[in-house]
């Protein structure tokens, strides 16, 4: 149902900048797909096209076999910044994600989600009174209240400290296991991608293209400090290093596969 297919997607902006060239990506139902790459590789552009916030110059995006134009009820998003509506309290912000729900259903799910994201008792507070991590929890609840088929994540944890980020990764995984949306996640954090994703698409910049797709064979729950986690991370780092070409080298000295960690 919520299979996401992106075929031969192109995006050239009005000023002539070619952001994406012939990008084809498929996310299976309930899969977490991470789009990884440095800045300028078009990953946010790709996400905005899938969200229906921008229009592609060419190519097709389809959801469950249905071709997409504009925004879609089954697609929901968490952005880099929480983007809570400052004039709505926490409860109302979460409810905002469930426009199509009945009032009763909305308030029931809001209460359940508040509890689920660890903010029970915070429902009547204003966004300004929450920490960055708490705001992002509200944003996640808002994105999930409508039980979306596809959840888009645009580097939602990049502005948080490492500890908050880690706990939000766990929260996201738990919620994903309950609801099983297909997740398309954009990130520049290799650790995050390896911890969360089923598959990682490494993009290369100028213009943004798919460089390599890597399947994670790590069972969940994953351990960030296990040697195998490091090995996978290293493999991804090398893929990124290759994707950047001569001028974008990121300082790798050892070949992929050697055991002693360079970090």
């Amino acid at each position: 149902m919520t299979l996401l297919t992106i075929e031969h997607l192109n995006k050239t902006y009005a000023d002539g900048t070619e952001a994406l060239r012939d990008v084809s990506v498929r996310a299976a139902d309930g899969e977490i797909l991470a789009i990884l790459g440095g800045s300028g590789c078009g990953k946010t552009t790709l996400l905005r096209l899938v969200a229906g916030l921008d229009e592609a110059s060419g190519g097709v995006i389809s959801v469950g076999g249905e071709r997409m134009t504009g925004t879609h009820r089954t697609i929901s998003a968490v952005f880099q910044e929480p983007r809570l509506l400052p004039w709505l309290n926490v409860e109302q912000n979460i409810g905002f994600g469930g426009q199509h729900l009945s009032a009763e259903e909305r308030s029931g799910r809001t209460a359940a989600l508040l509890d689920r994201v660890g903010l029970a008792g915070y429902g009547k507070r204003w966004p300004k009174d929450l920490s960055g991590g708490q705001q992002q929890r509200v944003a996640i609840a808002r994105a999930l209240i409508g039980h979306p088929g596809i959840l888009l994540l645009d580097e939602p944890f990049s502005a948080l400290d490492p500890f908050t980020r880690g706990s939000l990764h766990e929260l996201l995984l738990a919620l994903w296991q309950e609801m099983k949306p297909t997740v398309l996640m954009v990130t520049h954090d290799v650790d995050e991608a390896v911890f969360l994703a089923d598959r990682i698409v490494v993009m290369q910049p100028r213009p943004g293209r798919v460089h390599e797709t890597i399947t994670m064979n790590l069972p969940r729950p994953r351990d960030r400090i296990s040697p195998v986690f490091d090995t996978v991370k290293r493999r991804i780092m090398h893929a990124i290093d290759r994707s950047l070409g001569e001028h974008g080298r990121i300082g790798l000295r050892q070949a992929a596969g050697e055991l002693s960690p360079w970090w």
């Binding site: 969200a51 916030l53 925004t71 009820r73 697609i75 929901s76 952005f79 199509h100 808002r142």
Partner: peptide, 16 residues
């Protein structure tokens, strides 16, 4: 603009 986009993603009409 970012808040307007939130409205669009969550399915508001122009009037909404």
């Amino acid at each position: 603009r970012k808040l307007v986009e939130v409205g669009r993603v969550f399915g508001l009409t122009s009037f909404g």
